[in-house]
Structure formats: C-alpha cells, structure tokens
Simulated assay, not measured.
Amino acid sequence: MEIKNEETCKVYYDDFEPFCRWKNDEQRILEIHLRGFKKQHLRVQVVEPDVVKITGERPTDCTLRSRFRKEIKIPKNLKTDEIRAKLCGDILQIILPKQTTAFPAKPCCTESTTRSECMPSNYLICIESSSATLKMNTKFALQVAGVLAVVVAFGAYAYKCCHSGHVEG
C-alpha cells in the first residue's frame, strides 16, 4: 500500500476574470469567453431577483484548477424567470429576454448612480445601453439625410423647370 505525500495532493487555483461583452437583439445576450471550459464545469443561477451568478471551475493539470466567479445585475426590463444559458464552443451565452412594455425602459445609467451600482458587471450593461442609443441615433441621422436628399433633388428639379421656361425670348 502506497502512502501519498500531502504535498502532491494539494490543489492550487488560478482565479481569472473572463472577457465579457453584451449583444442586443430581441433579447440581451451576455457572451462570456471561456477557453477550455465544458458544460459540466459551469453553473448559472439567479441568486436574487435581479442578480445572476455565473461560476466555473476546470482542471488545468493534476494540481492546478482554473476558476472564475461573476455576478451580473439584471435591469428591470428583462424577464428573470426566462433566463437561459448555452455553451457554444468557447463562448457561454447568457440569454436575457426583454419584457414587452408600452413605454420605453428607463436607461440604467443615471447621474444618481450609487457606488454599488458601478461594479464592472453594471458598467458592461451601461456600455451596451450607450451603444444601443448610438445605433438608434445613427439610424435616425440616416433617415434625416435621406429625406434631405429627396428635398434637395426636388428643389433642384423645380428650379430647373421654372428657369428653363423663362429663357425663351
């Protein structure tokens, strides 16, 4: 019978912060990049009515394990009871369906943001809100430019028609 040395049984952890990004579609999708993780290494749970906790741990060798923990504050305009998660290759997608409302949702970033609301997870949510506003403003600007182009073209046509009739002499 062989007795194992206590030193060889000790496990060490490599804690890391995974790269995350938000996508905005008919639903909000948080993509978390997790190279080498498998479905059985991950856990996603709603720990409070407005917080999702994502944890993962996987072995990298016989004494080293790679792990992370992330908590995401969920905006009020999302359905917490319909949150889903799926692993596609090295990307974990947390899918947060939006609630359908008759009124637009209040933006998550306001001037009265408290210190606890400025955690990195919330910061990511606010970046996405800013980019969604930017996309909306860009779309509006393109519509205005299209209308202006039509008005200018019509004005040029009208000017040409009016001045070509007065040239006869």
Rank of each mutant, 00 (worst) to 15 (best):
E2I: 01
R84H: 08
F154L: 15
S164H: 15
R65F: 01
E57I: 12
I125R: 00
G155E: 13
F37E: 06
A132T: 05
D14S: 11
T114S: 15
L30H: 04
P18L: 06
L134A: 14
S130E: 09
Y13R: 11
I74K: 03
A105W: 02
N24Y: 08
L78S: 01
L124D: 07
C108T: 13
H163M: 12
I125S: 05
P97C: 04
E48G: 04
T80C: 03
E2F: 04
E7H: 08
P49R: 00
C20E: 08
I95H: 03
I3P: 02
D61W: 00
F68R: 06
P120G: 10
F154T: 13
Q93E: 15
F103S: 14
I83P: 01
E48I: 04
K106H: 01
A102C: 06
V152N: 04
T138N: 06
Q45H: 04
I127W: 03
K53H: 01
T100E: 15
I94P: 05
N5C: 10
Q27V: 03
E57M: 13
C109S: 09
L142K: 12
S116M: 06
V151L: 15
R67A: 09
R58I: 03
E57T: 06
N122Q: 10
L34K: 06
E168W: 12
C9T: 14
F68I: 02
H41K: 04
R84T: 12
N137M: 04
R43L: 14
R69Y: 02
V150C: 09
L78D: 02
Y157T: 10
Y12C: 01
K160S: 10
S129E: 14
R84K: 15
